[in-house]
Design a protein around this nucleic acid. Structure first.
Lengths: 284, 284
DNA sequence: CCAATCTATTGATAAAAGCGGTAGTAACTA
DNA sequence: TAGTTACTACCGCTTTTATCAATAGATTGG
């Protein structure tokens, strides 16, 4: 009532918006003033005017109402069966800006559902999902197909080849396999040591790291060149910290397929369903 | 009731702490559960056990209650006549860590009172306070005494002379006035251009800046040496970014007196009174 | 000066909150 | 195993609160 009266500027109007009579608002405000010990409105004018103290209390009242609102929306969310939390496991390289946007939207749609974001390398993810340690997996497609896991192809993640701007390779106008051979390539591998089939070696000198972020740091230090997801290096390229290589041969290879997975036959709650469907659009 | 029941683990105990009967708590919780649409407590055991959903709602309920608590404490504060805001003007160099502590304590004692922190140079402050544009002033004592303003001496702020570690002055074991003469001194002056009496020139080459922070930056860039408040340079000295000069002569000069001022005969509310009294201890 | 639109107040009424008591049940104790 | 204790749910009754409709007085704008 206090907030409605302050916003409409009149007790009668507040009553109308609240579906109550004018007298209810009037007595309500008076009672609140008695409780607080000071006047909220100045009644000397036709329309009640917030006093300075009323102005101060209004912000507190709004804060209370906002918390109550949070509570009821959370209750609605719980009532409609939203999960307590959703466990999303993804390859480090797939935390795209568009995915973050989906997660923000998720937070608004499912205010009472927490997200656990697990990161790892692609080959590990199907196993984690199969063991029900994550609800959804997002990863680069590997050769193997895990049993009991449902896979959905959602697109290709564009990769680019990069090195530091003063690297010898940047001097060439066109680069073929021969040129690459003689310069150090930085390549991803799994923490267990296995090399990933999606990312073939093209140089005689290959160093490995277990995350794309680590690879990017090494490239930026001038250690070598690498194929990296475009979104991880686009700002560095724009600011001149990295340079893109002009490759001659087939590019399609370097937009590896990405897929989204979940446990087959699992009963999905509304939150997991929404997230699973949304993630399908993360590359489009 | 929900929170009390969750914390005590029993509806009866909750009723006792709330000064209500057991039946009131029981029906209250049931009504809440009906409103929310799901059960908060599992009643199969002797003592009601929070369900998972109840656990989730409890955090929201606590948040609501906390906001209500904020509102009522603010109301109490307003009721007991606390000011809407307190305007504290101080010399940039006097924002000491101990002052920040007092301000934090102020925020707890007077939750509904805002603080406006105005910064300026010492000579301007008496005028601002005299014109009632600030409630309290904290500054280095100047020669002139402003009419209608009450001054309280509260202590001396220790100053030290500093320069960069590789400065020629650091090579000397003891420095007298003659040595200082030939090196550039960085000195404070007011924005209006007047030199401040408290900080005398000791070198033939003097550059000025209008804030101690600017002076410190210049010293750290190796522009010259300066007398600066100890608390502004103590961490830089400890980390080796600045070096302290070993002066031979009188040091007392370099702990300028600090005073706290307010308008004479002004009716002070509880917040201004408390802050004025607290600030007196800022240098002890 | 009038019409419209406020607010405060009053008496009546419906809704709610709460109390005391009771019955049924789970956990503990001897 | 039986008795005791402490707990919850439910019921009827009472008190308190919330709200309304109606009314009187006040302010504003044309």
């Amino acid at each position: 009532m206090f907030i409605a009266a302050a916003e409409s500027g009149s007790f009668s109007a507040a009553g109308r918006t609240l579906g109550k009579g004018q007298s209810a608002v009037s007595t309500g405000i008076v009672n609140l003033e008695v409780d607080l010990g000071f006047e909220l409105f100045d009644r000397t004018t036709r329309k009640p005017q917030l006093t300075e103290n009323g102005e101060r209390m209004l912000t507190y009242a709004r804060a209370v109402l906002m918390q109550v609102d949070n509570m009821t929306t959370a209750a609605d969310s719980i009532f409609s069966g939203d999960e307590t939390n959703v466990r999303l496991m993804l390859d480090d390289a797939l935390l795209l800006p568009s995915l973050s946007q989906f997660l923000i939207e998720f937070g608004e749609r499912f205010p009472a559902t927490r997200i656990d974001l697990l990161s790892g390398v692609s080959p590990d993810i199907p196993g984690i999902v199969a063991q029900d340690q994550a609800d959804i997996g997002l990863m680069f497609s590997g050769g193997s197909v895990q049993k009991g896991v449902e896979q959905v192809f959602i697109g290709n993640l564009p990769f680019v080849s990069v090195c530091v701007p003063n690297h010898p390779l940047t001097k060439l106008t066109e680069i073929g396999a021969n040129e690459l051979l003689s310069h150090r390539q930085l390549l991803l591998r799994s923490p267990q040591g296995s090399v990933l089939a999606q990312f073939p070696e093209l140089s005689t000198q290959v160093w490995h790291a277990t995350s794309f972020h680590a690879l990017r740091e090494l490239v930026m230090q001038g250690v070598g060149w690498a194929y990296l997801p475009e979104h991880l290096v686009s700002t560095a390229i724009a600011s001149g910290q990295l340079a893109r290589l002009n490759l001659r041969f087939e590019h399609k290879l370097w937009s590896p397929p990405v897929e989204c997975i979940k446990l087959k036959h699992s009963r999905m709650g509304p939150a997991v369903s929404w997230l699973f469907d949304s993630i399908k659009n993360v590359l489009s």
